[in-house]
Design a protein around this nucleic acid. Structure first.
Lengths: 118, 118
DNA sequence: CTGTATCCTGATCGATACTG
DNA sequence: CAGTATCGATCAGGATACAG
């Protein structure tokens, strides 16, 4: 598998993860399994319906999540990871771990700067 | 290490990788080692000086890459991955692999849609 | 050679209101 | 309940010109 700049496929993976709420949505569905629209919304404080809908549609278009509509009143729609979407889990986990370490790293750096300037 | 939505650190890692040229820059430095500004520019067809400078500064601010200035005329500036930056390599590799498989996946999907519509 | 400084455009995000 | 429509703000990205 080539990794040269002129054949870089990192962007393709990145494109799917990028979006202010996508990582949270994915991690949540991975952990909790199938969820309704309203449950997702309740769990992401601050997200608007428009945004949630948009992010879900984009993930659905990439086959990362599945959307099941129950034809009833009131409507019920459930979202869940696809088999394929689950292949992203190791990457998400790795990024979470790395991200956690990185915030530590940055805090240490700040501490050192404070020390040297005092 | 908690991965709950309210403690999601994926964004922190994502923030560093996001930027139109960052993945390419990182992969390039990872493979080729230390490079000059002009070499980087030559290797990223289409990037402007402003953009290259900006992306490099952002990566430098996060301690992912190191910037060494040689005080001479004409100026010479070298960029390289830091020890710390190298810890991103597995993630970058994983995303590249996944991205490559994903473009395959999308092509298969398109094929199937063509078949079923004919 | 290695940058900064301006200005501009399009995409993304968000607040709000409305609907089957 | 689960959306869609509209409008405005913000921001990343890019073209271009200039500078140490």
């Amino acid at each position: 598998m080539e990794r040269k700049p002129d054949n870089c496929r990192v962007e393709d993976a990145l494109g799917i993860l990028v979006g202010k709420w996508k990582p949270v949505i994915l991690l949540y569905l991975l952990q909790e399994g199938t969820k309704r629209f309203s449950e997702l919304k309740r769990n992401m404080p601050g997200i608007t319906q428009k945004m949630l809908t948009k992010q879900l549609r984009e993930l659905e278009d990439e086959d990362i999540i599945a959307r099941v509509v129950y034809p009833q009143v009131p409507p019920k729609v459930e979202y869940s990871m696809t088999e394929y979407g689950r292949s992203l889990e190791p990457i998400l986990e790795a990024m979470h771990e790395w991200g956690a370490k990185h915030t530590e790293h940055k805090m240490e750096k700040q501490q050192n700067q404070l020390k040297s300037s005092s």
